[in-house]
């Protein structure tokens, strides 16, 4: 039974990826891409990587899909130059086939039963302050990577400002729509609860700041798209505090041991769990803010042009 499911996934994933590239309509490509993302989340779950599956579903598929759909509403309906793409395709296909063959050759030569660093992680997990191995790696053993990744997120938010059009909070139809209003009212408390739960559960199971931040951002995206909220802007002091409290706290926790003769990010064993929880809470807000800053509001209605998709 499991073999059948895995076989289906292994067949469907490349097929969907091919269809995403092949389809001539952008909106179809987006829908297919979302389907591809959901199936690959399933694939990660089958590979016993629930943390990656969660992130893939929430960020890779949910938010990215929403962002792509939203982008479609901003673009004009000029059909892509399909013929030009078709001419380039054989070369791209050949290059990809060659890369796949090379990778396959290398992967088949890999040791089949290597546990990676899993044994080392398990051996030291007791000292990390948390019980879930993924959280122990992300926030403690390799917390320095995560510190730099938070900087990557901030930079991405700064870069998004350059391309995001300045949209006013146009009073769109969606804002007055009673259905979305009711949906939003029902959804918000549930989202907050799920996000809080995900941070808390990261201590001993799949979850953590990234997943929780993505869930929070999901609620925010609905608020932005229905004009209940504007896109967070760096010009607002409140937005800057919400964005930067997490990184500041993380840097503070990281350098504190230096002042007492310790090393960077060397958490005292007794408080490690608490410190990680506080940092993750603050980072959840940061991550949600960063993801929200990618979303411009609804497009102001234009006159004399074809309506948005």
């Amino acid at each position: 039974m499991d073999g059948l499911l895995d076989g289906c996934l292994a067949l469907c994933l490349p097929l969907l990826a091919y269809l995403v590239l092949r389809t001539e309509s952008l909106s179809q490509a987006v829908v297919l891409f979302v389907a591809f993302g959901l199936l690959s989340a399933l694939g990660w779950a089958r590979l016993e990587a629930p943390d990656i599956a969660l992130v893939e579903a929430a960020v890779g598929t949910g938010l990215t899909g929403a962002l792509l759909m939203h982008t479609l509403s901003w673009t004009e309906e000029t059909p892509p130059d399909v013929r030009a793409r078709a001419r380039r395709r054989p070369w791209a296909l050949l290059a990809m086939a060659a890369l796949t063959l090379l990778l396959g050759w290398a992967v088949l030569a890999l040791p089949a039963d290597s546990p990676g660093l899993g044994l080392e992680v398990d051996a030291r997990r007791e000292d990390s302050g948390v019980k879930h191995p993924v959280t122990a790696v992300l926030l403690n053993f390799r917390g320095y990577d995560t510190l730099l990744e938070i900087a990557v997120l901030l930079v991405a938010a700064l870069g998004a400002r350059a391309v995001n059009p300045r949209s006013e909070r146009a009073s769109s139809e969606a804002a007055k729509d009673p259905l979305t209003g009711e949906l939003f009212r029902m959804m918000t408390p549930a989202l907050l609860l799920v996000a809080g739960y995900l941070v808390w559960v990261g201590d001993h199971g799949p979850g953590g700041a990234f997943q929780a931040g993505a869930i929070l951002a999901g609620g925010g995206v609905v608020a932005i798209l229905t004009s209940r909220m504007g896109t967070p802007r760096m010009s607002s002091l409140r937005v800057r505090w919400a964005l930067l409290t997490g990184p500041l706290l993380f840097i503070g926790v990281a350098v504190a041991p230096l002042f007492s003769g310790g090393r960077l990010l060397e958490f005292p064993e007794k408080y490690a769990g608490t410190l990680i929880f506080i940092v993750e809470m603050a980072l959840t807000v940061t991550i949600a803010m960063v993801l929200l800053m990618f979303f411009p509001g609804t497009r102001p209605p234009r006159t004399g042009r074809g309506s948005a998709r």
Partner: peptide, 25 residues
């Protein structure tokens, strides 16, 4: 002057500076 501090500051100081510069606006 521990080795830990010596090696950490060249990375941490510009990072802290960047975050604070964003914060003060």
């Amino acid at each position: 002057t521990s080795v830990a501090a010596l090696m950490a500051w060249p990375v941490i100081l510009p990072l802290l500076g960047a975050v604070l510069a964003l914060l003060v606006g």
